[in-house]
Simulated assay, not measured.
Amino acid sequence: MLNKLKTMLNKSEHVNPFDWLKQKISNTNQKVVLFGSPGNLGDMLIVASTIQCLEQRGIDFSVGSERYYEANSGNDIYVIMGGGNYIPLYNSVRKMLDHIEKHAPNSEVVVLPSSSYGMEKHLQSLKLKITFFCRELETYKSVSSALSKSQVFLSHDAALYIDLQDRRFRAMRNMRKVLKGRAGDTLHAIREDREKTENFVVEERHNNIDISSLRTNRGSEVLSKHAIDIDSVFEDVNFMLMYLLPFEKIVSDRLHVCIGALLLGKKVDMYDNSYGKLSRVYRNSLKDRFDDLIELHL
């Protein structure tokens, strides 16, 4: 299956979702309404990068409130944060799409780079104009079977567009200066939830800390503004990156713990999660960029 997918697409066809969005609203003068997806500390890396990318391109946005549809100008485009929530295990993105269909039918919706499987029938049922960015080939194939291929794009996980030189990461950079490149020991950060890997047995000697769960679900619902409280988002990402800095190697089945560590130049033992998300993103985005730092365990 993987070989067939590779023949469908090549690396030159990755589309930057933020450049695409900038071009679209430049032509249509649409207003961006941004919805966060509830999640853990690692998901805040996606949110921070998304905010940066919108700001860098001069894309004004408002944060979707509980009664967003009452403020609809008739020219709104609803943008949903990327991630791994549009799968049968979770219901937050499905509920968000259902909510938009109910209160603002036929609206334009953009789903930023995400993983998805098993949601084809739901996508086909929606009376919405959806553009879907996929962060791996398998999701591209799944979503393309439900939507027109002109509405589906292969991209990279949004966290990979982040700029760590942003002034809001000053705390992390200051800690890096204090450490002066000193790093030691290994951090084991294996999940403790239903997505945890089947290929690593956590023992007491590992002192495992699932750091993504240390700060989780600032917004318990997609429509909660706390899911995109900008100051809190950058505070969370600083916390996570500073937590990773003193370690030489990270062992994890958390995609964004791995990505955060790679962005810091750490060695990473990457274990696949329960449904193959990490290995798929690795093949689509991480292999060429970070292959010398990653040891992948399937």
Rank of each mutant, 00 (worst) to 15 (best):
R182G: 12
R215L: 15
L137M: 11
N284T: 09
N284H: 08
D292T: 10
G181R: 06
L187K: 10
A171Q: 13
H14Q: 14
F290P: 00
G74R: 13
S224E: 10
N284L: 10
V63H: 08
L97G: 06
K6T: 06
T28I: 07
K177S: 12
K141D: 08
S232W: 03
Y90L: 12
F234D: 01
R215P: 00
S213R: 15
V32R: 01
E55Q: 15
I87P: 07
N273E: 11
P17D: 11
D185H: 09
L128Q: 04
S26I: 12
S150I: 00
H122N: 05
V79C: 05
V110H: 00
I250E: 00
N16C: 11
D193W: 14
S274N: 09
V109W: 01
L245K: 03
M96K: 06
E108R: 04
S274H: 05
A183S: 13
L89D: 14
N273V: 14
L263C: 09
S26M: 15
V268D: 04
M1E: 10
A183V: 03
I77K: 05
L296T: 00
K277I: 05
N174F: 01
I162P: 08
F35C: 09
Y271I: 06
L286T: 02
F132R: 00
A261V: 06
M242Y: 00
M119K: 12
R135K: 11
K127N: 11
Q151K: 06
K22C: 08
A104L: 01
L9I: 11
